[in-house]
Nucleic acid binder design. Structure first.
Length: 554
RNA sequence: GGGCGAUUAGCUCAGUGGAUAGAGCACAGGCCUCCGGAGCCUGGUGUCGAGGGUUCAAAUCCCUCAUCGCCCUCCA
């Protein structure tokens, strides 16, 4: 609908300027928005005011000229008004709205999808937590946001790969292995001095106990090299298995897990650094190698190879991103914790040094979660190993409530997550509100079926019967859904779905309470069934993208 | 000290330069002989942190300031 009006406007502007009534070089793409108030019609455009400032004419006058040249061939317009400072308000004929429902029938569970992505290959990388311990609640938010962004991009026609980057290189891995080893010795009866910076969590003891079960005490007198070569991969592997399981129970399934070790194979990182050195993006200072990220706007240059000859995390990350491009991804989306925002300029510097356009990388920053229980903060500390795990949250509040609650805010704003509220099956918990609307619709359809009504085909209903304000409102919301999907994909903002769903459910519940769907009048019941079924389709489609179930009963 | 972000109703937050700034929660009162009451309806509150600027139009863009948070490793 928006597109249709937009075309009408563009044509009118073109004709006007050809007639010499408007002196403009190029027609601006008109802004068209659904209005907030009925008095302003159904859609409004500000294009006259935009043009007016360029041609130095009274905006209302410009609007009049445009309106005079509108050619409403299909007869969709009831009337067009010029209002306020120069808005053009479109009033659509009532029966036009019902026509929009035909798309819902035609596209069914694909309604809302599009092909604007054109099959472009996009990689969404998210979670990517170090394999040094189970995922905690902080990771959960990033997991859902990445997952839903990927689902949304897929819905608008991108070829999407979900990837998890495993940071299984570096000091932390040795620390992990040694942590398990110390607990191993401890469990075998030795006195150990467990350093405070080692991993403290209970899961370390569990892993150690496993080793004893399968390997016995054979490592008690082994030298450090043998210890590490067993304990490091063992612990990392077991933890990654756990992470995979936890994610699956949270509805997150990755297409690919990428190990950092991969980057070091065949001296990959070292060779990359040499190349960048040849292109003089990298310079030497003593033993240290610096990346000239300031060339690209970073505030200072960054070390890629340390004094001691070890490459930094950043060095590997450059190699990783180059690898992504080499695998054929045209766009890359990284989902990071917001505390990494200082890392952004150097990453942009890196991809530009690699010869890639800056806008092929997009970084979504995810703010911290405030975990609450009954309004009180839940104490968490990684150091002491006391944290609420993703698994515990899913077990306690369920996948649907957890996912939905993590999607209720912009990703870069802080989020309060209250376990008591998320668990509550009440109106404080928005996920039920939306799911309830869906269950209610299913129930209506069932009742209808029992009374020998079935959902009609679009061609079978009498459009003029759907003319109540609540019905027009519902249809408007339904017709807006594809724009929600498109907008969310374009802006990488999954929270738009939850806001939209809440509104759609509200309009539906209100309608339901005011008017009977299944009644005496067969034609009327039929038309309303069609409408209500369409609402159900939209709810289902949106919830599917969010990875939240749309229950038929609750 | 520098960088980034935030500041909108009692609370938690939406708001893509547009008309009278919205939603949920909380609070108060009402609504089922009827398709699911996990629902609906009715109530009201804003110095959009402050001040300046840009323009037909600013919560939105620019500058200054205040408060809060995060980051400022040759950690990952």
């Amino acid at each position: 609908m928006k597109e249709k009006l937009s075309i009408l406007l563009e044509e009118a502007i073109k004709v006007s300027s050809e007639k010499g009534l408007l002196k403009i070089e190029e027609t601006p793409s008109p802004g068209i928005e659904p209005t907030k108030e009925d008095a302003f019609g159904d859609y409004a455009s500000n294009v006259a005011m935009v043009i007016a400032s360029k041609v130095k004419t009274n905006p209302r006058k410009v609007a009049e000229i445009i309106v005079d040249h509108l050619d409403d061939r299909d007869g969709i317009l009831e009337k067009v008004e010029v209002a306020g400072p120069g808005f053009i308000n479109f009033f659509l004929r009532e029966d036009v709205w019902v026509g929009l429902l035909e798309d819902v029938e035609k596209q069914g569970d694909r309604y809302g999808e599009s092909s604007v992505g054109g099959g472009r290959r996009v990689q969404v990388e998210f979670v990517s937590a170090n394999p040094t311990g189970p995922l905690h609640v902080g990771h959960a938010r990033g997991a859902v946001i990445g997952d839903v962004i990927a689902n949304t991009l897929r819905a608008v026609g991108y070829d999407v790969t979900k990837e998890y980057y495993i940071n299984d290189v570096g000091n932390q891995m040795n620390t992990l292995g040694l942590s398990v080893y110390l607990r191993y010795r401890e469990l075998l009866g030795e006195e150990v001095d467990f350093p405070p910076h080692y991993y403290q969590g209970r899961y370390i003891q569990d892993l150690a106990a496993q080793v004893i079960k399968t390997q016995g005490n054979k490592f008690l007198n082994a030298d450090e090299k043998d210890v590490l070569s067993f304990f490091v991969p063992y612990a990392a592997g077991a933890i990654m298995d756990g992470i995979r399981d936890d994610l699956r129970s949270f509805g997150v399934v990755f297409d690919n897990y990428f190990s950092e070790q991969e980057l070091y194979r065949n001296d990959g990182v070292a060779r990359l650094i040499e190349e960048l050195q040849e292109k003089s993006f990298i310079y030497r200072e003593g033993n240290t190698l610096w990346f000239r990220t300031t060339d690209f706007g970073d505030e200072k240059d960054r070390v890629v190879v340390r004094e001691n000859g070890e490459p930094t995390y950043f060095a590997a990350d450059i190699a990783y991103h180059r690898n992504k491009y080499e695998r054929g991804f045209e766009e890359i989306i990284d989902v990071w914790g917001a505390d990494h925002h200082g890392y952004l300029p150097r990453m942009y510097a890196a991809i530009q040094a690699l010869g890639r356009e800056k806008d092929t990388l997009k970084v979504v920053l995810v703010q911290l979660v405030n975990l609450l229980r009954g309004g009180k903060p839940v104490a968490m500390s990684t150091r002491s190993g006391e944290f609420v795990t993703l698994r515990e949250v899913v077990d306690e509040v369920g996948k649907d409530a957890a996912r939905y609650n993590f999607l209720m805010r912009r990703s870069d704003s802080h989020l309060d997550f209250d376990l008591e509220i998320a668990k509550k099956q009440s109106n404080e918990n928005p996920v039920y509100y939306v799911q309830y609307a869906h269950a209610r619709i299913c129930s209506i359809l069932k009742t209808a079926h029992e009374r020998c009504y079935s959902v009609p085909r679009y061609g079978e209903i009498e459009p003029r019967l759907l003319k109540l304000p609540e019905e027009i409102m519902l249809i408007k919301y339904i017709s807006r859904y594809p724009e929600v999907v498109g907008g969310s994909a374009q802006a990488l903002e999954p929270h738009r779905f939850t806001f939209y769903l809440n509104e759609l459910a509200a309009v539906f519940h209100s309608y339901y309470n005011k008017h009977r769907v299944v009644g005496e009048d067969a034609a009327l019941s039929s038309a309303r069934l069609f409408l209500v079924n369409a609402v159900g389709i939209v709810l289902r489609n949106a919830l599917r993208i969010l990875g939240v179930t749309a229950p038929e009963k609750m």
